[in-house]
Nucleic acid binder design. Structure first.
Lengths: 156, 156
DNA sequence: TTGACACTGATAATCGTTTTCACTTTCTTT
DNA sequence: AAAGAAAGTGAAAACGATTATCAGTGTCAA
């Protein structure tokens, strides 16, 4: 986590941008997350200890983290963006539980290969893709009828 | 097209809703489209001949068409919804050209089967999925450098 | 230490979509 | 055909996520 913070500062430096107190706080909070966070969610986390930070600055810092290659932005169709660590992880897709909102990552070489085939057959050159599966996770399908699990949905 | 309009009216009737002039006009315009339309795009089409119709009514009617099972709503991550005919077509996914915005539909039983496998392995019960491929269509990869084709992107 | 210039936060603006509300239309019942 | 209940309409306002504006503040290289 310290190395990621360092990377971020190096990026800022190289780009002629400034390493401010706010940016460090927000970046730390982001690197401390273990799952997908929304801007709002990250804002709430940071604001807990540093109430004077504005949501706007969180948005701006998330954009910088993207530019630095340290964060990925995902759109899951519910109208807001969720952010995840980019770090060293390779490409993956997501399964979203429609009951509790839990997001699980996975990767399948076979699926990717088939996509390539299909696309080539249609005369397209593939650049990137987005695969989202929706369903019930083990917990939620086991406990069907017990009502939704208590998970913060992307709220961080 | 007449039969779809009929289906729509039957749906309205069954649901205790009213078959108004506006709804018929908007539904006709929707059934006359051949590709994906946004609410705004459909609105522009209808307004050409019927300037007094409001955008709000288009939104409301599109929702009714969804409820009637005659339209599907798609989110392609650019912040607005595109609508397509539901009719008798089976499930399919989309390839979007990043240059000209053209949307091509495709279906692959193999990909779906693999998805099932992956999901089951992770303990999920799949409900539905969303696969979007992004790349250059034949025209745009052939003419790279000639600038973007002139296509209305989902504007109807 | 200083000064240029990037940054911050409050507020306003955007964009697609939905809600509100006063008025109009449909459609069922006579 | 008339009437009235209930749904529908359009304009305008509200919304929620995100971005821009702008006056005041902070950073950092010289």
């Amino acid at each position: 986590m310290q190395d990621k913070l360092l990377q971020f500062k190096q990026y800022l430096n190289r780009a002629g941008l400034k390493a401010t107190r706010q940016r460090e706080l927000i970046a730390r909070a982001f690197f401390a997350t273990t799952t997908h966070v929304s801007a709002e969610g990250l804002y709430r986390r940071v604001r807990g200890r540093h109430p004077r930070i504005g949501l706007v600055t969180v948005y701006r810092t998330l954009k910088l983290l993207k530019d630095a290659g340290l964060a990925h932005e995902r759109q899951f169709g519910d109208g807001r963006a969720l952010f995840e660590h980019a770090s060293s992880e390779r490409h993956h897709d997501h399964i979203i539980c429609t009951e509790c909102g839990k997001i699980t990552e996975f990767a399948s070489i076979e699926i990717e290969a088939l996509q390539e085939q299909v696309v080539r057959r249609l005369g397209f050159q593939i650049q990137h893709h987005k695969l989202e599966l929706y369903g019930l996770c083990r917990d939620c399908s086991a406990g069907a009828g017990r009502g939704p699990e208590v998970h913060a949905i992307g709220a961080g």
